[in-house]
Design a protein around this nucleic acid. Structure first.
Length: 283
DNA sequence: ATAGGCACCTGGTGGC
DNA sequence: TGCCACCAGGTGCCTA
């Protein structure tokens, strides 16, 4: 599920309960997610203080005062629940464990952060903080969409070498960090480019706007996530699944939202994943 | 080196 | 109600 905007939203959601606070106890309810947890993880994390949270691509990174960094990936179905009372104070009474509640952070401030992931495509690991991006899961990831290295020239250049459909190229985390199936569909709709087009065959004139469009689409989604966060004392405190209506994703058969178009949105399968697009507006 | 396909896992939905 | 096929927001690994 979670692409960059959802991961960013989850990170911001756990921030108040975590940053500057001590993790009283880390509880692992099973030995692994996608991979086994690192050895001694409970002991290495319990009792540390969280210096700060960062996001790199779809990973949340929690820097601990033990000079280790906790890496969290939500996979496809990972969710995080923060237990707190309706007034927004940290609660010391927590809801009963649900199925697939695999990891629990009991904070010294009384907050409980629960990681739930039915499909277990998520992951956690511990690395030395000063390792930076050298971790095997991070070292091949491309530029952050909101970072300086990501700009028109960079993207035009890399896309003109890609012999795959533009859909696959933008999904490739080495090209740009954080896009997933939903937001690539939305970006291509906004760019008016068919997901089927081979990337290197698209003129520079047409690929040039894509980097800006990526920033706009992601920023808008983060904003939508932020507005659900503002409300989250009224909800159950569950983070990650804010849903705002997409323009093409999940809209097969519905009319294109572009002014005066009305063409039915089409769904095709590309390398095993659904692409949604308007066959008239996207060429 | 690059592109494409599979595998990992569980749950929800819709058809018969 | 049961069974089955198909779908799902990710990504590492293997193959050609």
């Amino acid at each position: 599920m979670p692409e960059l905007p959802e991961v960013e939203t989850v990170m911001r959601g756990i921030e108040p309960a975590m940053t500057g606070h001590k993790i009283h106890k880390l509880i692992l309810n099973r030995p692994d997610l996608r991979w086994p947890f690192p050895s001694g993880m409970e002991e290495r994390v319990s009792g540390t203080k969280v210096r700060g949270l960062r996001r790199r691509s779809k990973y949340i990174l929690a820097d601990l005062d033990s000079d280790e960094t906790l890496l969290i990936h939500l996979g496809m179905s990972g969710r995080i629940l923060v237990s707190r009372d309706p007034l927004g104070n940290f609660a010391h009474d927590h809801p009963p464990l649900q199925k697939h509640d695999h990891v629990i952070f009991d904070m010294e401030n009384g907050a409980r952060i629960t990681f739930n992931d039915p499909r277990r495509f998520g992951a956690m690991d511990l690395l030395e903080t000063n390792l930076g991006d050298a971790h095997p899961l991070l070292c091949k990831i491309g530029p952050e969409p909101f970072g300086n290295a990501f700009n028109e020239g960079y993207l035009v250049n890399i896309l003109k070498k890609k012999n795959s459909p533009i859909k696959s190229a933008l999904l490739d985390q080495r090209v740009v960090a954080g896009l997933g199936n939903i937001y690539v569909c939305e970006v291509l709709f906004k760019a008016g480019i068919s997901p089927k087009t081979i990337a290197r065959k698209i003129s520079a004139k047409r690929t040039m706007p894509i980097s800006q469009i990526i920033k706009e689409v992601l920023a808008e989604a983060i904003e939508a996530g932020g507005s659900t966060l503002k409300d989250f004392r009224h909800s159950d405190g569950e983070l990650g699944y804010f849903q705002h209506r997409f323009k093409v994703y999940g809209r097969e058969g519905e009319p294109c939202v572009n002014e005066g178009c009305e063409t039915k949105i089409r769904r095709i399968v590309q390398s095993g994943r659904s692409s949604f697009y308007c066959p008239k507006c996207q060429r």
